[in-house]
Amino acid sequence: MKRLCVIALSVALATACMKMTGIDVEPIGSTSRGLFITCEGNFMYGNASLSYYDMETRKVENRVFRRANGADLGDVAQSMTIYDGRGYVVVNNSGIVFVIDPDTFVVTATIEGLTSPRYIHFVSPQKGYITDLYDPRIAIFDPRTNAVTGYIDTGSHPSTEQMVQWGDYVFTNCWSYDNKILVIDTRTDTVVDQIEVGIQPTSLVLDCNDKLWSITDGGYAASPYGHEAPSLYRIDPATRRVERRFTFAEGDSPSELAISGDGSRIYFINDDIWQMEVTAENLPARPLVANVGTIYYGLAVDPATGDVYVADAIDYQQPGVVYRYSAAGEAIDRFEVGIIPGAFCFKSL
């Protein structure tokens, strides 16, 4: 019996080995024109990732941040922006912005001290803004040092999202249980005005005619904040007034407003993929790309070619898929990316 115990114990101990090791670093990168896809990953699992797609070769490299840095990107990769030759990847629930070399994907700096960062915008080489999901302030940072230098108080609007700049003013939409677009004077770093739109504006772009466009989701049934049909808004940033409201049917779920490189056409998801001239007076009747049998999650338009990229998060628990269509809506490519692909960032040469 004692011998049996010794054998059993030995077997147990011999097989009882878990090895957690570091992540191997690979020398990867691309100097060609390409597309970054930020994949959110699952909340609290820390499995966000960054994919890179070479438009010329149609080759995708996944988990490029991890492979280039030997570290995970973090929890909920929200957005990415390239400015002055540097890529800024905003990782929401890690409370960090990674500054990477867009060619090698290697981290060169970080911006920390953030609560729940969402989007980043550059006012000048000396100043940038970072919006936040919970913090009723927009962080001001210095891109030269990557240090947070101050805050813009947004008052009772804790949820600030995307930003676009017109002249000296930055406009940002307040999404969560809100209906405002805030106007920030970049000279004073203060909120100087607000524009009321429909319930929960999700996104914001600026067209070639210097008009702002925003799309609202209308909230949800029984929300104490109210519920209404979602709408697309055209706003004059000079007068800060809504010029035109295009109302969708109740039950529609428009989202992910994007704009062409020349600013003449807007795109959005509403079950299908839709394209609309910025001079149009009515919503389009036919989609650019019909739904292939899923719920689209992300949308972007190549500013150089007009190609349309659409992300499918599938069941949010498996690697997603990105479709590439031509400007005319013809299928060009389909490729697998990380879990919950949500945002895109184009790298130009």
């Binding site: 147990a12 101990l13 097989t15 009882a16 080995c17 878990m18 090895k19 957690m20 990953g41 699952n42 699992y45 499995n47 990732s49 996944n62 988990r63 069941d315 628990q317 498996q318 690697p319 697998e336 990316v337 990380g338 879990i339």
Partner: peptide, 20 residues
Amino acid sequence: FTTSSNDLRLSDPVMPYYMS
């Protein structure tokens, strides 16, 4: 597996667990 598709290329699994 940590994904519904059991993918091991784009998401890590939780490694086998042995505890004494």
